[in-house]
Design a protein around this nucleic acid. Structure first.
Lengths: 229, 229
DNA sequence: ATCAACATATGACATTTATCAGTTTTTGAT
DNA sequence: ATCAAAAACTGATAAATGTCATATGTTGAT
């Protein structure tokens, strides 16, 4: 049987924490829980979304394809984060694709069961605004990093980000396992360039790898690099 | 005498369009209209803001300084746009500086007269959310452009953006007059690189200049360039 | 267990962009 | 109108990054 939003701890991380019991009931009754396999798309750039996706488990990349065939990963979404709300709020096709980076469990919430809340419950709307403010700040930071940091610094920063946001397993390996191509697409560089830098970090002893897994050995060195030392 | 928000057409461009008569009155009573000269700061990165700024006239750049002394302009704000709301909403110091790019007239609205509305009037909050959604989408686009377009393409795009967003005068010259350094900071490149590209565009007959003023002659060519032709 | 498809890796080289150094032009204060 | 400071400009060169080619390793479907 399906679990209920009312009992879902994950909603503490998103605007649903501000929803009333009745509102939550409505959401819960209409939501659909889906399993999404690594590599599958939740939605694609240009689609008009009729609902939002709340991540229960796993990680999704939000990316945008450009004319030259390159892909830029704009951000990663994990537990508790909601994807697609922008499209629902402004009633426009989404500007980003969402593709699972690991196996995922997401709840799809049809827009009908939230737009009303969005127009009636200011606490909920305010929470959404607060969270979007946060996303906007992060986006601003990314813009600044893209223009002012070298590829090497951005790769270092990406590893630190992956560690602090998604954590590590018992062996100290990053839980999110991105392909080299994905790392390049987060950082905004060519795959080969990313690979070269990763190799260099390995040689320098900043990180180590085991198969596809990556572990940060010398966090300090990476931080210094990001700071420009 | 000061003009009243109730009669201000500019508020149609921001969330205040959704404010009630009483709410508007409160805002109007507490607001302070300021004149800001070109080059002066409305606020600086790191400041805790106790209100928001609504632009009546002129253009402001929102930028961020980085460790290496470089500046990145994240966006430009003009008539009707509100600056500083992120800081007020999340109650954090602002991550950006706002500096006038032309002489400006702005209204400073103390946060006390809007936070209440933000928590009580869902229409107002929703409008703010809608506008921030728009900003977020734009920011995403900037990220993608930064990583996937060449400096030349980004300069071309910047000119097209300045034309379509801020318009031209009778002579066809861009109304917003950015210094070469500012253009470089919008585009995320070195000032010299921006200058070189501008010179090239002049030679190619895509643009012409008269003193500091810039006019787009061949919009099509610039568009093609942005598209990668 | 095998094999094709894909991901990772590395070298050589081309291209883009930044940096430094210096000149000319513009601007604003007096 | 004059002059100093700032901005715009140009060339030479260095550094960073992308591209292409090719080799090796890994993985998942049969």
């Amino acid at each position: 049987m399906e679990s209920r939003c009312e009992n879902c701890i994950i909603r503490q991380f998103n605007a649903l924490r501000a929803a009333s019991t009745e509102e939550l009931k409505k959401v819960s009754d209409s939501k659909i829980t889906k399993k999404v396999k690594r590599g599958e798309a939740l939605f694609e750039e240009g689609e008009k979304l009729n609902g939002v996706f709340c991540v229960r488990n796993g990680v999704s990349k939000l990316s945008k394809l450009s004319a030259n065939g390159k892909n830029q990963i704009v951000r990663l979404a994990s537990k508790g984060e909601v994807m697609g709300q922008r499209s629902v709020i402004v009633e426009e096709p989404t500007n980003l694709s969402a593709i699972a980076v690991s196996d995922m469990e997401v709840c799809y919430i049809p827009k009908e069961s939230i737009v009303n809340t969005l127009h009636k419950n200011p606490d909920f709307t305010f929470e959404a605004l607060r969270l979007m403010s946060h996303d906007l700040k992060e986006a601003d930071d990314v813009i600044v990093n893209m223009s002012q940091k070298t590829v090497k610094q951005r790769v270092a920063e990406a590893f630190l980000y992956l560690k602090s946001n998604f954590g590590v397993d018992n062996g100290g390996f990053l839980l999110v396992r991105l392909s080299r191509e994905d790392i390049a697409n987060v950082v905004g560089t060519a795959t080969e360039s990313a690979i070269r830098i990763i190799s260099e970090f390995k040689k320098l002893g900043y990180i180590k790898t085991s198969g596809k897994k990556i572990s940060i050995i010398n966090e300090k060195k990476l931080q210094d690099l990001v700071q420009g030392f």
